[in-house]
């Protein structure tokens, strides 16, 4: 694996190389070179098994991390290629021509994160959601709890009490304390 990475590093500039295990390495590459590297790994380094295409939302940095998992079935190791793309007008070069299942992944990422992959077949078709008019739901700012509270009705008559606040109310209502109400009553 070490030699391989050295080889790759002469061709591509890789950053953040992290070994999670001996046979699982994560690395980061610039957006422009990502598909190039993935193709190279597939065609020249035997990474013929495509495991997963995923996205991580680093909302605080304004970035989406696209994660391409590649597996070398002969040598039995994995390289995980990460790249950061802008969250605004998120767009990435399509890789659907490399493996068939990538079409599905890209459709999903389009729907769940709002990332566009121009040219990817059916990328704008509904995948899982139908008639969804909120922001793409896997984005960090989409608040599932609030959505479900707004969309569904809560059960009538439920009320809970925070033990510390309740004890203050019962036992020492007028005395000073720094105990904070840590759970809000519902």
């Amino acid at each position: 694996m070490k030699d391989l990475l050295e080889r790759l590093n002469t061709k591509y500039s890789l950053t953040d190389i992290e070994y999670q295990r001996d046979n699982l390495v994560f690395l980061t590459i610039r957006k422009e070179n990502t598909i190039d590297l993935v193709t190279h790994l597939r065609d020249y380094e035997g990474f013929t098994h495509f495991v997963l295409l995923s996205c991580v939302d680093w909302i605080e940095d304004g970035k989406f991390q696209l994660t391409y998992f590649l597996n070398q079935p002969e040598r039995k190791y994995d390289i995980v290629v990460r790249t950061m793309i802008d969250r605004d007008n998120a767009e990435m070069v399509s890789a659907h021509h490399l493996w068939r299942q990538i079409t599905t992944y890209q459709r999903e990422l389009r729907e769940m994160y709002g990332i566009n992959f121009p040219g990817s077949p059916g990328v704008d078709e509904n995948f899982i959601l139908e008639g969804w008019d909120e922001i793409p739901p896997m984005r960090r700012e989409f608040d599932t709890k609030k959505y479900s509270e707004d969309t569904f009705f809560p059960r009538e008559g439920r009320k809970t009490h925070d033990p510390a606040s309740y004890m203050k109310e019962k036992l020492y209502p007028t005395e000073p304390t720094t105990a904070k109400v840590n759970k809000t009553d519902e």
Binding site: P163, A164, M167, K168, L171, P176, T177, A179, K180
Partner: peptide
């Protein structure tokens, strides 16, 4: 476990879990 049961017993009602 941050239950805050102790706060009532502390004579100064300190914010112990906090």
């Amino acid at each position: 476990v941050e239950c805050g049961i102790c706060t009532a017993t502390c004579p100064a009602h300190m914010g112990i879990p906090e």
